[in-house]
Design a protein around this nucleic acid. Structure first.
Lengths: 248, 248
DNA sequence: AACCTTATCGTATTTTTTACGTCAAGCCCC
DNA sequence: GGGGCTTGACGTAAAAAATACGATAAGGTT
């Protein structure tokens, strides 16, 4: 065995969005595709890393191209380094397309959270990309299903520990929407009365004074995430001990 | 900007050990070193990835070389991809040493947990490596201090969520040792009586029947980690909801 | 024997989680 | 327009977990 020199580095991003009901992920058509009918013709957006580019920069670039957004919540998760994860015609296509001669492609998985609004959807529609319900995805190109699964695992864990949920919601949202998001992502049922108590008790939600309109029930109050209050709370907790319990 | 082709992938491992008092990390002399007096002459063990080798395999290889151990607890954390993280004479040395012509080295950080026993220490001593108290480390070669800091952060988080602590302790240990480990890594004080209640109440510790010998106080009972009980508990919790709270 | 350290058991208080009752506000349908 | 339905919003009580801390025992040291 010798050092591997003809290798390439890429990033692939699982971009999550929430439409109020279920969790969606952004998928694009693979550019190389011998048969349009292939079940795995969809993939996560991704790209090769450029010269003098860090991985986070490459991921941001991919995100900007795919969604038109900057300042997206973006987090690195795992690396997928199976020497055979890209091979055969797939690898040939990559070499042809880029005019290079690589023997393996190691990819770094990222996941991103976006606020699904009309502008983003218009942009992605225009690009030919689509938002697919995560639950419904059976297979993807190459090992992208595996990357997506890893992203989901990371998202679940992070949702339980930090307020990333707000990255998936519009700036103003109702408590019920927040609850639905947690329930959908974590796959659990949540008692609305206790959820409200807990979330309001944390002091991280600031009421806007605006109410829902045109809904077939008592209209709910819109809230915003109070980032400053959250940071204060984190600071206070850090002084004691750490997360959650184990304080003593 | 164009695709980066002349790049290399490496792994660097922060190998942690616990001697009963403080957390240590395994450091080796950098092989390239123009001045032996340099303050940053120590580094984390690492290596370039080989052809047809996955990253976890490369990390295992590094670990086996550095500690003589297989079956080590090993976890990927972050990637360090700053194009300039290795450059100048450092980069030249790498090219000369490996007989290659790389322009940048992207490294994947791993952290590993080992049981610090006499055999491991003899092995690492023999290799010229050393176990250094984490708190005391001021600087390391290249960006290895940064990698170490990241590893510490990951370790802290993981200690709070999963029973990785036992990877750092001998097979048989006292509750006080376990408590000291938590206190040292997390930097908190822990009430022994409550700690004991909590940890024994979890049912993850199996008493061995053996007692400490030759200590200047009432000898403590040795326990072992009951992995099977832990797995059962995890399963039971997963059925309800998820980690900790948020169950409803 | 007096003293110190640590193990080990226990109890009381506080905080958090969980379950669930109740009513109000809006829309829909007949 | 009134009954039915859904969801918001407030509240209370029981259960569980976290925390503080008292008391005794078992070893060694001085």
């Amino acid at each position: 065995m010798s050092l591997q020199m003809n290798q390439s580095l890429s990033v692939d991003c699982a971009v999550f969005g929430f439409d109020g009901r279920s969790l969606k992920v952004l998928l694009v058509e693979r550019r190389y595709c011998d048969s349009a009918a292939r079940l795995d013709r969809l993939k996560l957006p991704g790209a090769m890393i450029l010269e003098n580019e860090t991985l986070p920069a490459a991921a941001s670039r991919v995100l900007a191209e795919a969604t038109g957004l900057r300042e997206i919540y973006l987090k690195q998760m795992e690396i997928f380094s199976d020497p055979d994860r890209v091979r055969g015609e797939e690898l040939e296509w990559i070499n042809r397309y880029h005019g290079i001669r690589t023997e393996r492609v190691v990819t770094v998985g990222y996941y991103a959270l976006v606020k699904l609004d009309a502008r983003v959807i218009a942009y992605t529609d225009d690009k030919g990309a689509q938002w697919v319900e995560v639950e419904a995805i059976q297979r993807l190109a190459m090992d992208h299903k595996q990357i997506l699964s890893a992203a989901l695992t990371h998202l679940c864990r992070e949702m339980l520990q930090s307020p990333v949920a707000f990255e998936l919601l519009p700036r103003k949202f109702t408590i019920r929407e927040l609850q639905n998001l947690y329930a959908a992502v974590l796959g659990i049922e949540i008692d609305n009365r206790n959820f409200r108590k807990k979330i309001l008790g944390s002091g991280f939600l600031a009421p806007t004074g605006e109410y829902e309109q045109g809904v077939a029930h008592k209209p709910a109050l819109y809230y915003m995430f109070d980032k400053a209050a959250y940071k204060r709370a984190v600071k206070a907790k850090l002084r004691l001990g750490f997360i959650n319990n184990w304080r003593y």
